[in-house]
Design a binder for these strands. Structure first.
Lengths: 327, 327
DNA sequence: TTGTAAGCGTTATCAC
DNA sequence: GTGATAACGCTTACAA
């Protein structure tokens, strides 16, 4: 850690032979005599002066810094989300303070505390603890989950579920299965199932659903599937999984048992995860508009505080074929 | 953006009926009379006081903040690296300022500037611009690439190449091929090829190498492979790719042409990328110890500045089977 | 227009 | 050991 003896505004003022206030004005683009401006600019360049955001933040009570509280970057969805959030924030002149919670609510709490100590201008969070204490004075936007009455940005999960059902039905499926494994915490993502089921019924079809929570294993899925395979034929011909990850695993399980996908069974996942190596979707999927979600979250946090904060913003999803449906 | 009217040390002092200095001492764990400490602690709790890191940083010239300058989080290697870096830093009491450059050297430069303005305590960077201007007063540790004389942390790329060759040879390969597509910028990763070739020669084997740079497409690889397939047999029986991504694509290409992997051709990639859905390696691979690299970078940056900064630290890699080798 | 000075919330150096 | 007080680098009235 080298000690920083960076030049300050005072140094610039001395070098330019003007006062502190003048330097400040130049830096903040406040009108100043042309000659002064030139002298100051020259001094700044000569000394390599850089504004000290800490001093500025202290004075203005504005840090141009937003905390990103995320469970992990091992999952592509989170990684890409953080990527987009960080880019959006940077475009708006904000910096991102990244905090990884590892799905640990203790850490989540600590992050919120740290964020507060850092006097950040806001928090964008995807958390798993339902009862996080959030300081009322700080602006928060959540992704996919609700936290007190802070606005939540998500994809249109309900419609995504509907879309999956409609697509499978349009592709000729007659017996539909819905598999979900997810958070004990109820969030926006839990609307995928209802959307799917509703669209099934609306189309006069029944649908078998199996819903597990994160603290269980996926074993019941596979046991169920196993029991419903007879002579290499599954009793269902259309499956909707609440994530691409699950979709991929289910595909693999079925293919190992000689169930042909998409010939005999078609499957749709959710998320729109793109394989890093091939650039393709890992299965047919309902694509979440991650970049738009990031943009919405940032915009909501920075430009729409105060008056009319919506409780939820859900963004349009679309279906993308990924080899596990006939189209 | 709600305005923050958080309580200050002054408020705490008044509430506790002590002076400012005493409050400061309590907060910084400097010995203080038991009664005072209790009164201050009570006041802190009552008011919900939180230290203002900006004011503290201004005074102490220490921000406990490190900038992470990364090209993108779309690639799992970067995502996991950032994940680990951020966790390490947090454990050491540091915050991470994430900056995504999108492989754009203009942005890289801007990030370094922003980092400097933010008076961060150091930078951990994976950049693509060879001539980034780095302020001499700031500590930098790079990953995989060299930047002026800042220390660089990487996996043991050269040995990784050797390992790949030795493994393929041990598994019975007779005709070896090396494929590399990578940065125009020369970094530590460019040692994989030499390591591979050297180990080949040491074992009395020749090795055909094709090296492309980022600004080209991979087409020449596939053209070459196509020309060297006769009756479903490839002229080579062992391939080393300089990344798992390339490895996966090459496998796919060959399998589509009925070349059997790993029966007829064995392939080893580099990175140790784990599939998010299955948790398995995407191909047989030389695994980079990402967590250890992160730890080394953080440790180097925070605890070993000044005296003996190594130019390069390379960490041990290991081979992991991933279905594209016979073991 | 430009310069001066107060103050943001801390820490640290003093006397007491 | 405790309490004033002077910085830290900046912004912002306000005075010149």
């Amino acid at each position: 850690m080298k000690s920083s003896d960076a030049p300050t505004m005072k140094d610039v003022a001395r070098e330019a032979g003007v006062s502190l206030g003048t330097v400040s004005k130049v830096i903040n683009d406040i009108p100043v005599g042309e000659q002064y401006r030139r002298r100051v600019d020259a001094a700044i360049k000569k000394l390599g002066y850089q504004v000290n955001n800490y001093a500025r933040g202290l004075k203005t009570n504005k840090t141009y810094c937003v905390a990103l509280v995320m469970p992990s970057l091992h999952h592509p969805f989170f990684a890409v989300l953080v990527n987009e959030l960080s880019k959006c924030l940077m475009e708006e002149g904000y910096r991102s303070l990244l905090m990884i919670t590892s799905y640990d609510s203790q850490v989540e709490e600590k992050c919120f505390l740290l964020a507060r100590q850092n006097k950040i201008d806001g928090i964008i969070a995807l958390t798993y603890s339902p009862d996080l204490e959030v300081d009322e004075s700080i602006s928060v936007v959540t992704i996919d989950r609700h936290l007190s009455n802070h606005p939540c940005v998500s994809s249109d999960n309900y419609h995504g579920g509907e879309l999956a059902a409609e697509k499978l039905i349009a592709l000729g499926c007659k017996k539909l299965l819905f598999l979900q494994i997810g958070n004990v915490i109820v969030g926006e993502a839990e609307k995928r199932g209802p959307g799917f089921e509703n669209a099934c019924h609306r189309n006069g079809m029944t649908c078998h659903s199996i819903v597990l929570t994160d603290d269980e294993t996926e074993a019941p899925f596979y046991q169920f599937l196993e029991e419903h395979i007879h002579n290499g034929k599954l009793d269902f011909d259309g499956i909707f999984c609440n994530s691409d990850g699950l979709g991929v695993r289910v595909c693999e399980f079925l293919r190992e048992r000689n169930v042909r996908i998409p010939e005999d069974v078609q499957l749709i996942g959710y998320d729109g995860i793109v394989d890093y190596a091939t650039g393709r979707y890992s299965c047919s999927t309902i694509v979440q508009p991650i970049a738009e979600m990031a943009q919405a979250a940032v915009h909501l946090l920075l430009h729409q505080q105060g008056d009319l904060m919506p409780r939820n913003i859900s963004l349009a999803v679309h279906f993308a074929p990924g080899g596990t449906t006939r189209e």
